[in-house]
Amino acid sequence: MGNTVQYLAMVQSYTIIGISLIIGLGAVAACIGISLMCCSFLNGAARQPELIPTLQGKVFLLMGLIDAPFIIGVGLAMMFAFANPLLAVIK
């Protein structure tokens, strides 16, 4: 009984660290990607202002693509937070 509680606490604490890493590293990567793309957008808009409407649509879509891994990571983190499959091994 005592060992089980200890294992449960250990799994939960490591899960919290894993969730933090998933969300934190994903957010950092998405921020780097979006900042690089915004930099390129500003460069392109300064060089050829007539292309701004075309570039705007691409920026909107590419932001979604760059954020996709982060959103998937958020979904995985929620799975570990609300329905942790690792706890089933101990129970």
């Binding site: 979006i34 915004c38 957008f41 500003l42 808009a45 300064a46 202002p49 701004i52 705007q56 920026v59 909107f60 932001m63 979604g64 954020d67 982060f70 959103i71 958020v74």
Partner: peptide, 17 residues
């Protein structure tokens, strides 16, 4: 302006997430 467009896009992304 490019800056305003970028700000608007970033707001849209925040709402989306």
């Amino acid at each position: 302006t490019p800056g305003a467009i970028l700000f608007s896009m970033l707001k849209a992304e925040v709402i989306r997430v």
